[in-house]
């Protein structure tokens, strides 16, 4: 580089240069615009085939009936058994992940020494990087027998161990997003708390958590949307038999197998149903429902984080 003479005209601007710059700009813009195309394509493809599905199966049956069974290309398609299984998974996994995740976030943001943090944070990151098929395997082969061993009468496929695993899977998400929210609470607030004679416990629970509450809630919503969309754990550990929520004995629902919406989609495509049949197309209707729910939850999370955020200078 150094031996080249510097007699270049720096202010030179040929029309070719300008055109070239424009081409690059539009190429890069096309890359960014591709993401919008992806969203549109998801909605379009799901909606188109979902509409065909509702030609074959009345929407009233889909949204009101409480029985879902698939026999060959046909069957009865009432979505509630799948929705109830998804809800069970979501609620139980939230019960696992929310307290644990928030407590972990408080520890990492308020109590941990630098050295401790430098060990725990990468460890949690690794936890977040484990594929869901591995979690599913752990739930099926190790957790379910362990639950049976301590006397909980769960079946080979059951919603309980699947929910616990989904909960463990989303802990890193809750903890890292909540910790981000807590670390962005300005130190001056903490100092003021200490100045008022507060203990570290009082500062954490009385000042930091309330100040970061919008970020914490948005992390809950994101994590729950992840739980709703989780596929492999529930397919492997919860089984593929749809079962309507049994109101007379709610706890029993946890012990038996169930089929959440994502598992229903996998079942529809891996069964022998021919393309274009109601069974096959039910995948698109379920997919659209799932997409709408998770998309709405993600938007809600953004909204909560932005709307209720405390502004600090």
């Amino acid at each position: 580089m150094s031996e080249r003479s510097i007699d270049v005209d720096l202010t030179r601007s040929s029309s070719g240069q300008v055109v070239k710059e424009r081409i690059y700009k539009w190429l890069l813009f096309a890359c960014a615009a591709l993401t919008v195309f992806v969203t549109v394509a998801i909605i379009y493809t799901l909606a188109r085939d979902a509409i065909t599905f509702f030609d074959l199966v009345p929407a009233a049956e889909f949204f009101t009936e409480t029985e879902w069974f698939v026999r060959g290309d046909g069957g009865n398609f009432g979505v509630w058994p799948l929705v109830s299984a998804t809800l069970i998974i979501t609620v139980v996994s939230a019960m696992v992940a929310v307290p644990t995740g928030v407590a972990a976030a408080v520890y990492l943001s308020e109590y941990a020494t630098d050295r401790m943090r430098s060990v725990l944070k990468p460890a949690l990151e690794i936890l977040a990087g484990i594929p869901t098929v591995v979690y599913g395997y752990l739930a099926l082969v190790y957790l379910t027998p362990a639950l049976q061993a301590i006397g909980i009468p769960v079946g080979t496929f059951n919603l309980l161990s699947a929910s616990i695993m989904v909960g463990i899977m989303i802990i890193p998400m809750v903890s890292s997003l909540s910790e981000d929210a807590m670390s962005s609470v300005p130190d001056s607030l903490r100092q003021a708390g200490y100045g008022m004679g507060a203990t570290k416990y009082e500062v954490s629970t009385g000042i930091v958590i309330p100040a970061a509450i919008s970020g914490i809630f948005s992390s809950f919503i994101l994590a729950l949307s992840r739980a709703i969309g989780e596929t492999m754990i529930v397919v492997m550990a919860a089984g593929l038999r749809p079962r309507m929520f049994n109101f007379s004995n709610p706890l029993n629902n946890l012990l038996s197998s169930g089929q959440p919406m994502t598992a229903g989609m996998v079942n529809a495509v891996t069964s022998d149903a021919t393309g274009g049949s109601a069974t096959y197309l039910s995948m698109f209707a379920l997919g659209l429902t799932l997409f709408v729910i998770t998309f709405a939850m993600n938007l809600a999370s953004d909204f909560v984080a932005a709307r209720y955020q405390e502004e600090y200078q």
């Binding site: 992806v38 394509a41 998801i42 085939d49 949307s225 989780e230 994502t262 998309f295 993600n298």
Partner: peptide, 21 residues
């Protein structure tokens, strides 16, 4: 905003997109 939301779409939905597209 759209990119942020796409990151939260379940992977099984992307499978359906790939199948259709």
């Amino acid at each position: 905003v759209n990119i942020g939301n796409l990151a939260g779409v379940p992977s099984v939905v992307y499978g359906v997109l790939g199948l259709a597209l």
